[in-house]
Amino acid sequence: MNTKDWKILLVDDEHEFITTLAERLDLRGIPARVVFDGESALEAIAADEPQVVVLDVLMPGIKGLEVLERVKRSNPHVQVLLLTGHGSTRDGIEGMRLGAYDYMMKPLNIDTLIEKMESAIDYARKSAKAGQ
């Protein structure tokens, strides 16, 4: 698996959590950009489309599910992995209905996250090809 060309965007208002996660991904050869709110996420996606967005559901300002909705409208090939908290089933199911690729509950297992990222990238590539 060549991860160097993966384009990942991580979005969470928990600075320590998300920057440490980015650092751990970097140690595994997976580059990831980090932003801390929904507005910045939408700007980052518009400026340079990622393949996968890892998106926290509960954030101040624009909520994760709203970001998801807007991303799926503007950039339908971008795959979104939601990070949910308690009551994850409800948020997760709602997220899947809105077009999320999958959801995970915090705290994360990094190996599971990478597996889901890989599968989402594969799906994104296939769906982009099919849409050409």
Binding site: E14, E16, F17, T20, K106, P107
Partner: peptide, 9 residues
């Protein structure tokens, strides 16, 4: 949960 997630990372 956020605190625990940060400790785990």
């Amino acid at each position: 949960q956020n605190i625990l997630a940060t400790i785990r990372e």
